[in-house]
Nucleic acid binder design. Sequence first.
DNA 1: CTTATAAATGTTATATTATTACATAGTGTT
DNA 2: AACACTATGTAATAATATAACATTTATAAG
Lengths: 135, 135
Amino acid sequence: MVISKIDKMHSLSKNQQIIFDLIDKSPEPLKAYTILFNVQKKGIKAPPQVYRALDKLVEMGKIHKIESRNAFIACHNSSCQVAKATAFSICEICEKVTEISSAGLSKYLANFKDKDGMKYSKYNLEFFGLCKKCR
Amino acid sequence: MVISKIDKMHSLSKNQQIIFDLIDKSPEPLKAYTILFNVQKKGIKAPPQVYRALDKLVEMGKIHKIESRNAFIACHNSSCQVAKATAFSICEICEKVTEISSAGLSKYLANFKDKDGMKYSKYNLEFFGLCKKCR
DNA sequence: CTTATAAATGTTATATTATTACATAGTGTT
DNA sequence: AACACTATGTAATAATATAACATTTATAAG
């Protein structure tokens, strides 16, 4: 076995790489059909090709879905180990989205227990407000 | 002026009332087209009628949208004053959704500051895991 | 009461987001 | 080579949401 499992886990297929590169270069979250439009010249012609790649990239933690916007952003936490515990701030005017990486916040949420004492290792938090520029 | 502003703020129009009643009675979050199907006998025939009522109800804090599920649930915080600061737990197996009302959590999030010192009064948090029954 | 304004409704059409289903091709392992 | 697994290609369609415009109803001021 030349390629270790670890290496394998970090390797992207052709379509995954194309779509990840596009999202990673983008200064703003991209919607699925915006992505589709932008990769048609690279041979990705149909929605399922885009959605499949997006699904895998989300699973891997390489990108995150901004649920309130139906859009995708590259993970900016160095490790990409936080695929399942995400937090973002969203400007309601310019729609700028920033991934929040706060040890305090993630610790608080990872340890949060509901009324029944249940803990949840997976969560998605979206803060809304006005960014510096828009205030 | 017989009806005070306070009363007015809590009164729902005909379509809003029909749709709120349906959601409020439901044990699970309802999707827009499920709602549409269920209120057609009451004369609400087209998507815009449903979406308009949903928008208003969300604004008023009478219902909340579960963003990761595109579904709507009635507010279960007695006051309905927390329209803009919501938290839910979602079971990944049975899809049961519960609104979390934790003074500690809401206080923590309302006071959370990002790297730039920004505060956000509005947020939506969705926890994922397995409910008691599904474990 | 009536008139101006805003809020809500009704309706058709269409835009946007996402999935199903099935056929084909590549990759890694034995 | 044979197998299992993952990824890809393609067409059709399902599910979610909004635009645009006409009409009606509710509210509050004069």
